[in-house]
Write a protein that binds this DNA or RNA. Structure first.
Lengths: 159, 159
DNA sequence: GCTTTCTTACTCGGATACCTACTGTCCGAGTGGAATAGG
DNA sequence: CCTATTCCACTCGGACAGTAGGTATCCGAGTAAGAAAGC
């Protein structure tokens, strides 16, 4: 799985902690996590396209959460960064080679392997869709949120 | 996810249908599914290392199932082909950048994001571990098994 | 005719290139803010 | 002192290279079968 998923989730949590009052620039977030600025920006753009973040252009611009943390599931973030297509995709190799000349009716029933893999992936998606950003926030220690807010406040005024 | 997972699963199902009496060569399996022979062989080797298949060298050699289909889970095949490490791996970016100078005790509690992602992945693995090769065989139509057996028998005697 | 030996063809197994996609980087368009000049 | 204007620095956004991992391929080691020669 892409590394950007972890980045996106951490940035969403951070933005939730910082509140919606003023946007946070990519450079600030990248400095906070020691990540490549431009590449992180690319990933945040994906979150904007998915309607998870809202971007503010211009000076003092940046990103903020587009909607309340209770309405943002981990599934939303994963799909936004990783793409909507599932990990296991059936290539229908049963129709290749020897099965190429078989009539269409022999493949009316879906591939059992694809069905089984799909079932597992649905369980994964269901678990991700059941966890919202608010749950992550609730589970995290309050001290982390405080430190994060303090760091961003200091950097804003400091050198 | 690697394409080889689908290949491995289909080959296991095919080998189960053909029975354990005589091994099947990579060339025969590759012809049956119209796959690159050498690359398929590489993947079958991975299944041998995992103890799922058994290889017989020499003329008339090939692969067969190493153990009964009831004891082979989809998880076993996926791990054998894809590797044991999970898809989402926490890089602990919370410790990078601003968090680099924090004391160790602040990270005693595991990362909440990693925990949530791990929970979803455990659900996926549990679903895969609950499905055995025997379940796939039972769900598949008997006609497919017959056709497969017939094709491999014909190819063996034919040109 | 039977046994032993040798050849041979076929198989797995690992070492070697290629290619897609993720990772990383750069520059331009656009915007808000601040300084400045004028009234 | 207040206001309108101009300039500027900062931000996002998409277009452009670099690199790791998956994909594909080839060749060598090893084995069992089969043919051939000898008894």
């Amino acid at each position: 799985m892409s590394e950007g998923v972890e980045w996106g989730l951490h940035c969403c949590v951070t933005l939730a902690w910082l509140g919606d009052d003023r946007p946070v620039s990519t450079a600030r977030l990248a400095a906070f996590f020691d990540l490549p600025t431009a590449y992180l920006n690319k990933r945040l753009q994906a979150l904007v396209r998915a309607g998870i973040l809202a971007s503010t252009p211009g000076a003092r611009g940046g990103f903020r959460l587009a909607r309340p943390p209770e309405t943002i599931t981990l599934m939303d973030v994963v799909v936004a960064v990783e793409g909507p297509d599932e990990a296991f995709r059936c290539m229908e190799i049963r129709r290749q080679g020897a099965g190429a000349e078989l009539p269409e009716r022999d493949f009316r029933q879906p591939c059992g392997i694809a069905t089984a893999m799909r079932r597992a992936e649905l369980a994964w998606r269901r678990e991700l869709a059941g966890q919202t950003l608010a749950d992550i926030l609730a589970a995290a220690p309050a001290a982390s949120a405080d430190r994060t807010r303090r760091w961003f406040a200091l950097e804003r005024t400091g050198s």
